[in-house]
């Protein structure tokens, strides 16, 4: 059992101290990542998806942050490690790529210096070996003439190239887990397609687990195998990717999927909308957090918070009324069959 999962996040809670009191950005998040799978972490801004990733990497300023729960990686709880112990894991066993490659790369060092630095620190290689490894990594991510590129500075290359450099750097120590935080959001669609392909290929080649954080459900459909949907610091639904797109059971997931303009949808129809806006973390609703915006909400939803419950293999949902959604799904399918 212990070896089945690469990463087990168990009831993770991340609390920031702020002037107006503690703010719980992540509130009891639980999920697992297996070897060789791409787990999508989806949600709108402020839902806590990036904070979850940063908690796994322990990147947050720990003066102002309190953690609770467990993050088990290779049989060790990352939250109980010292900073020195984390240094051996960060960038080595677990790597991360960020949204904005321009600000994540150091502008005063060449690309080669930056990739080789990671390799020299973690793999104890000599400078020359490390540079050769850097060239190999750049080649792997599909950068043309990498021997020349390693002497260039980040400002000399395009956005898509920079993201490839970030990927090369993240993968240079062959991590077993890669966290990609909106890796293609800042890129154009044609470049996005290239980068997603690179991630997909390398995942198979290196058999690593990937956590893909994104707000773009199109990207999810394209690369993820399993999806965790977050809303206001909580997981509200988890399912494998086909189930999530064919029969979502949380009203929020369903609403999100319906409100995206489809490339083959009816253009005369109005777009579906979810009422209202995401509430502030200082002002979390009682009961179900989504209830004030939910069309299915009942008295129960407003007063009592539902738990994340297992519905069927590989689908979990946090909703009192999922049976009704399930019923609608069955009816819809029946009409399409007829």
């Amino acid at each position: 059992m212990g070896n089945q999962y690469l990463l087990e996040v168990n009831e993770l809670k991340t609390v920031f101290s702020s002037e107006s009191g503690p703010v719980t950005a992540v509130d009891g998040v639980t999920f697992n990542v297996k070897h060789g799978e791409v787990l999508g972490l989806v949600g709108e801004s402020g839902c806590g998806k990036s904070v979850t990733a940063e908690s796994i990497m322990r990147l947050l300023n720990e003066k102002h942050t309190k953690y609770d729960g467990e993050i088990n990686f290779n049989g060790r709880n990352l939250l109980s490690l010292t900073n020195e112990e984390m240094l051996g894991i960060r960038g080595n066993k677990i790597s991360m790529i960020f949204q904005d490659a321009m600000t994540s790369l150091n502008p005063v060092y060449t690309i080669g210096d930056q990739i080789a630095e990671t390799i020299m620190i973690h793999q104890k290689m000599k400078k020359k070996e490390a540079y050769n490894k850097a060239i190999d990594m750049l080649k792997l991510t599909g950068i043309p003439s990498p021997e020349k590129r390693i002497h260039e500075y980040p400002h000399e290359i395009s956005g898509g190239m920079r993201q490839r450099v970030m990927i090369a750097m993240a993968l240079s120590c062959k991590p077993s887990l890669l966290i990609a935080d909106e890796p293609t959001t800042a890129l154009d669609v044609t470049i996005q397609a290239q980068i997603l392909d690179v991630i997909n290929e390398l995942k198979e080649e290196l058999n690593m687990g990937v956590i893909m954080i994104t707000h773009d459900l199109g990207v999810v459909a394209e690369v993820c195998t399993r999806v965790v949907v977050m809303y206001l610091g909580q997981v509200i639904e988890e399912a494998d990717v086909d189930t999530l797109f064919s029969s979502p059971l949380h009203p929020y997931t369903k609403g999100l999927l319906k409100s995206i303009p489809k490339i083959d949808g009816d253009r005369n129809k109005k777009l579906h909308t979810i009422n209202g806006v995401v509430p502030s973390l200082n002002n979390i609703p009682n009961g179900c957090r989504f209830a004030p915006r939910c069309t299915y909400a009942t008295e129960e939803c407003l007063n009592e918070a539902p738990l994340l419950q297992v519905i069927k293999d590989n689908q979990k949902v946090r909703c009192w009324n999922y049976r009704q959604l399930l019923k609608e799904e069955v009816q819809n399918n029946a009409t399409t069959i007829i």
Partner: peptide
């Protein structure tokens, strides 16, 4: 190319 590069949020 532009049309084919758009990720579609529909697995079917």
């Amino acid at each position: 190319a532009l049309l084919s590069a758009i990720p579609i949020p529909d697995r079917s």
